[in-house]
């Protein structure tokens, strides 16, 4: 039997329109909004794990901060979602950017641990050595729309 889902019945929200933008920073939300949730066939945007406001971009100082909100407090997928975000941004952004990924304050039981794990270079690199994890990440990143 497959293991039980952590959040079996998430609330699904509508997708926002995609306006054509000119500022380079806004393009970032286009990169990560379509990442698929590891558990459900919905995008992170549809589950409101990521919203447009939660992304902070500074093109001049080459800095990006993403704050995401797990669907439930004890979500063990939070690290996987974070990893997906990091990999996607690594692939989509020029190397000059520094990327910070954080769980929104007060939305996860082990907030600090997750944050530390996600922003530790060595740990991320180690995670990406794990073929199972890379597979899972790649599945989430497969473009769902064209």
């Amino acid at each position: 039997m497959a293991p039980a889902l952590i959040n079996a019945n998430p609330v699904v929200y509508e997708k926002k329109e995609r306006p054509a933008r000119s500022r380079p920073g806004d393009a970032f939300s286009h990169h990560i909004r379509d990442i698929k949730d590891p558990e459900h066939p919905y995008s992170l945007e549809e589950l409101k794990v990521i919203t447009e406001d939660a992304i902070e971009v500074d093109d001049k100082r080459s800095y990006v901060r993403v704050t995401f909100t797990p669907t439930v407090e004890h979500c063990s997928m939070a690290t996987v979602i974070g990893l997906c975000l990091r990999v996607k941004l690594m692939r989509s952004l020029p190397s000059r950017f520094k990327v910070d990924i954080k769980v929104a304050p007060g939305t996860h039981a082990t907030e600090d641990a997750v944050n530390k794990q996600l922003n530790d270079k060595e740990r991320v690199a180690a995670a990406l050595e794990n073929p199972n994890l890379v597979d899972m990440v790649d599945e989430c990143l497969t473009p769902s729309y064209e």
Binding site: R91, S92, P131, V134, D135, D138, T142, P143
Partner: peptide
């Protein structure tokens, strides 16, 4: 880049 990066997996 996505296409080339995921060749490995």
């Amino acid at each position: 880049r996505q296409a080339w990066a995921s060749i490995s997996s």
